[in-house]
């Protein structure tokens, strides 16, 4: 088990040390949320109505931003070859890398959400709901994104293609995430139904993401 811990620690450290780490993702999140009022106008009533959606889209874009390097850096320096041939379960390696990546870049987005919620005029109830849905749903974005990262690992400029491939996969997550976040009350069925679907999608991503990404990485070893 110690290799899993070592891998997690290394990936977490690298994600934090490379390219500004968590800060850069949060900064991008802030930038995305900031441009919305400039686009739709400083109407607080309108903003509070679409605020949950703005935050979710901001989190989605921020997640996509860092994903292209998830496996690419390892491929370029030869680490990927060793990860593949070591005899360790590649699916597990992918899962741990995703977990570390999410802890380093996804979790700060969730933590920043309550603060950014104030900019779009959400009330306390909505802030709780948006943060909760992102906490549960954002890992699914990373897991689905890992598939795109695995598929585009051999491309020099795979970032844009990664986003094109991943966004359709992220649509159901967005639908249920925003639906639950805008339900209004935590004890209502309006919240519970989409929220449970969101949980299901994350669990589903935990299975499909590592399987598909590991398969893609094995192909890239050729």
């Amino acid at each position: 088990m110690s290799w899993m811990k070592s891998l997690f620690v290394r990936e977490y450290q690298l994600a934090n040390r490379v390219g500004g780490g968590a800060l850069i993702g949060v900064l991008f999140f802030l930038a995305v949320v900031t441009i919305f009022p400039f686009g739709v106008g400083p109407d607080m009533i309108l903003l509070s109505r679409i605020g949950a959606a703005i935050l979710w889209i901001g989190a989605l874009l921020s997640t996509l931003l860092g994903l292209d390097r998830l496996f690419q850096a390892d491929r370029e320096d030869g680490s990927l070859e060793l990860l593949v041939m070591s005899g360790r379960s590649l699916e597990l390696v992918v899962l741990i890398k995703c977990a570390a990546h999410w802890a380093a870049t996804g979790l700060p987005l969730v933590l920043a959400t309550p603060v950014l919620s104030l900019f779009v005029g959400l009330d306390f109830q909505s802030i709780v709901l948006v943060t909760l849905t992102l906490l549960v749903g954002a890992p699914a974005l990373t897991l689905v994104g890992a598939v795109g990262a695995g598929v585009t690992v051999s491309m020099r400029r795979g970032g844009v293609l990664l986003s094109i491939l991943v966004i359709p996969l992220a649509i159901p997550i967005l639908i249920f995430g925003v639906s639950a976040a805008t339900a209004g009350a935590i004890d209502s069925n309006n919240f519970l139904v989409p929220f449970l679907f969101l949980c299901a999608l994350t669990l589903f991503g935990l299975v499909v993401g590592p399987l598909a990404a590991a398969a893609a990485l094995r192909v890239s070893g050729d």
Binding site: R10, Q13, L14, R17, V18, E76, D77, G78, S79, E81, L82, M85, S86, G87
Partner: peptide, 16 residues
Amino acid sequence: EHSHYFGHLDALKPLQ
């Protein structure tokens, strides 16, 4: 799994 592979790339992370 019985092998070490030593290729052209060093598999080193410069920041660590």
